[in-house]
């Protein structure tokens, strides 16, 4: 188990290294020039060179790459004598645009993503598994058709459509909720909750579909298993047969997908939801950084998202080992 964890973490580190490298060199393959962007409209060649130097862009790609990695472990200093920015040990660089260390920005944006992603994930998992189970038990009947229909609706609509519709209905028209957005939970728990209800609902509608269908098909497969017949033959009530023996087995394939979804949601993949509801999250940060050719932020957000997806995978495997005794982690 311990050996397994070490091996997985080493593999995870290797994956991150590869991702960083690819992102780094794709950036330089792009035609845009961050120095030119930073230089503004009145740009002289000498000013451009100066900016290039201060951003470190005058060095070779390999040197820049090396500096980036060095910064991860020992920290870096940026700027010249006049403006000096220190970037502490796990240094992901400093934004070309705002001159703030990338990590600082990431950490300040992270709670929003954590709240949005985790909250929505818990909701769509519970609702999806519940609906899927009902659909499987009532296979072919009205409840099943309703659940499948609902799922189909969720798959076909787009986030910005649902998001704007919800905003229009609940904020503008009926004014039940305040304007959506992120407030820190420590500052104002009620505001945190109210501000996130609509973004959560939007994500739930979109993700619910998949989880309902996944649970339904997984459940139907499990219903055909011999051990379900054994459970009935013991004299167990139907509810216990389904919820204890059935769900326990049906949930395993769902865990895998769920882990990845949570990882990527927390890592900032809910970018459309963020922008519809005006939440400043990592997804939005990533999109902005690409538009501004802000290499350190691009690298930072990519690495950050990758960390969560990779970690989620490790967690999924560990949970798998707990759920399914046949899986031995070694």
């Amino acid at each position: 188990m311990f050996r397994y964890l070490i091996r997985r973490l080493l593999a995870a580190a290797l994956i991150m290294l590869v991702i960083t490298t690819i992102t780094f060199f794709i950036f330089f393959a792009l035609p845009s020039d961050p120095a030119l962007l930073a230089c503004g409209k009145t740009c002289s060649p000498s000013r451009l060179a100066e900016i290039k130097h201060s951003l470190g862009l005058d060095q070779s790609y390999l040197t820049q790459y090396w500096e980036f990695f060095k910064g991860l472990f020992v920290g870096r200093d940026f700027g010249d004598q006049s403006v000096r920015i220190h970037c502490g040990a796990p240094c992901l660089g400093v934004s070309f645009q705002t001159d703030t260390p990338v990590l600082t920005t990431l950490l300040s944006d992270f709670p929003a993503d954590l709240s949005l992603g985790l909250g929505a994930a818990v909701a769509f998992l519970v609702l999806g598994v519940g609906l899927g189970t009902v659909a499987a038990v009532r296979r072919g009947r009205a409840a099943d058709k309703a659940a499948v229909g609902l799922a189909l609706f969720g798959v076909s609509v787009q986030i910005y459509f649902i998001g704007l519709l919800l905003l229009y209905l609940f904020v503008d028209k009926f004014q039940i909720l305040p304007t959506s957005g992120y407030t820190s939970i420590t500052e104002d728990p009620a505001g945190w909750f109210q501000g996130l209800i609509l973004p959560w609902t939007t994500l739930v509608i979109v993700y619910l579909a998949m989880y309902t269908r996944l649970t339904r098909s997984s459940m139907l497969e499990v219903f055909a298993e011999d051990y379900m017949r054994t459970a009935r033959a013991k004299g167990l009530p139907a509810s216990k047969v389904v919820l204890k023996h059935g769900l326990r087995a049906a949930i395993t394939p769902i865990i895998t997908i769920f882990g990845m979804d949570v990882g990527s949601l927390i890592g900032g993949s809910a970018v459309i939801t963020e922008s519809v509801f005006g939440i400043n999250g990592i997804g939005k940060l990533a999109v902005d950084s690409v538009q501004n050719s802000d290499l350190p932020v691009i690298l930072g957000t990519t690495l950050f998202a990758a960390t969560f997806v990779v970690l989620a995978n490790v967690v999924v495997d560990l949970v798998y080992g707990l759920v399914d005794p046949r899986v031995r982690l070694a």
């Binding site: 011999d226 051990y227 054994t230 004299g235 009530p237 023996h245 326990r248 087995a249 005794p325």
Partner: peptide, 23 residues
């Protein structure tokens, strides 16, 4: 249901698939 398992019980063909793998 009261009778199943108590008065009438059953042994199935393939015990590997007839026993729940997770319990």
């Amino acid at each position: 249901r009261e009778l199943r398992g108590r008065t009438v019980s059953m042994i199935f063909q393939d015990p590997l698939s007839a026993l729940h793998p997770f319990f």
